[in-house]
């Protein structure tokens, strides 16, 4: 009887997901700039992604000496995301890493469980996102003060879970709220393993091809404050949709690309010119 009830509930839920007239393209891509969006990769499609964050455009590390940051790479990401269903996406990527733990292998799972409907009976789209990062840095056993001393293998692990809630207000404007929880198994002295944060993202679609995107994430922590040299990662960018190919050019003060990296580790300040040019190329293939 219990099984039957669960089956009926699952059927109703699946039916709810697949049989309604949904709002589409709240965001054009699965990522805004730093944050994920509520979008998932369509079933049987493979999204190949390359992301890049250059060095500081200005400030002490930028300017002419680094050709405005273009000669440095804060973080680089190569990854794929695959749509198991239209609502479930799995991802695998490698990032250089911009925080104290580098050489990251990231696996992710994304599940869109509510979709905004055109008849307004569901006003928002909700997606759960989970990320597991493993640092593959070489272990430094000679110095117990550094994080990559890795006393235990599990110290290489970092996690982030997010609830993405977005609404497409019109064909021009979409907005998203992102409560997040990030956990690092090993952190520097005085830092905290657990970090809650709240993010925001938006898109203004200028034309069929061009859109302005922006996002910001605010960690809730007594340590992660501007007084202590931490700044909220904020990004703004231009999104170009050429049909099957999304190209994003953005500026952000975040050095890291993955949530486990940029949420706890952003120490660059926009007002000091410590922001950088970044881009993401996404190309979807039918599988």
């Amino acid at each position: 009887m219990k099984c039957l009830s669960i089956s009926v509930l699952l059927f109703c839920f699946t039916n709810f997901l697949f049989s309604q007239d949904f709002t589409r393209q709240t965001f054009k891509d699965t990522r805004v700039i730093n944050t994920h969006s509520v979008e998932t990769v369509a079933k049987r499609k493979l999204d190949v992604r390359i992301g890049h964050r250059f060095g500081d455009l200005a400030g002490s590390g930028g300017g002419w000496q680094s050709f405005y940051g273009l000669e440095n790479a804060a973080d680089i990401m190569f990854g794929v995301e695959y749509g198991i269903t239209d609502n479930i996406t799995v991802g695998l990527s490698r990032t250089k890493g911009a925080g104290p733990l580098k050489k990251l292998i990231n696996t992710s799972l994304k599940y869109r469980f509510f979709r905004q409907k055109k008849d307004e009976s569901m006003p928002v789209t909700m997606t759960a996102f989970g990320l597991w990062s493993v640092s593959t840095m070489k272990q430094d056993t000679s110095n117990s003060e550094v994080l990559n001393n890795f006393p235990e293998f599990s110290h290489r692990f970092m996690y982030s879970v997010q609830l993405l809630i977005a609404r497409k207000f019109s064909n021009v404007f979409s907005f998203q709220v992102i409560p997040s929880y990030t956990h690092r198994n090993l952190v520097p002295f005085n830092d905290t393993n657990n970090l809650f944060s709240l993010g925001f993202a938006m898109r203004i679609q200028l034309s069929k091809v061009f859109g302005i995107i922006a996002d910001a994430t605010f960690p809730f922590s007594d340590l992660h404050t501007t007084e202590n040299g931490y700044y909220p990662p904020v990004g703004i960018g231009l999104e170009i949709d050429t049909g099957g190919h999304i190209f994003q050019i953005n500026f952000t003060n975040a050095r890291g690309i993955m949530e486990t990296d940029y949420i706890p580790n952003t120490q660059s300040d926009w007002s000091k010119g410590q922001f950088r040019l970044g881009f993401t190329i996404s190309r979807t293939f039918n599988l």
Partner: peptide, 19 residues
């Protein structure tokens, strides 16, 4: 529509028709 067979999406929005 909804990228059924194409990577290029069309819909009934003014943005699409203007494009």
């Amino acid at each position: 529509e909804a990228k059924r067979y194409s990577f290029f999406e069309l819909d009934n929005s003014a943005i699409t028709f203007r494009y």
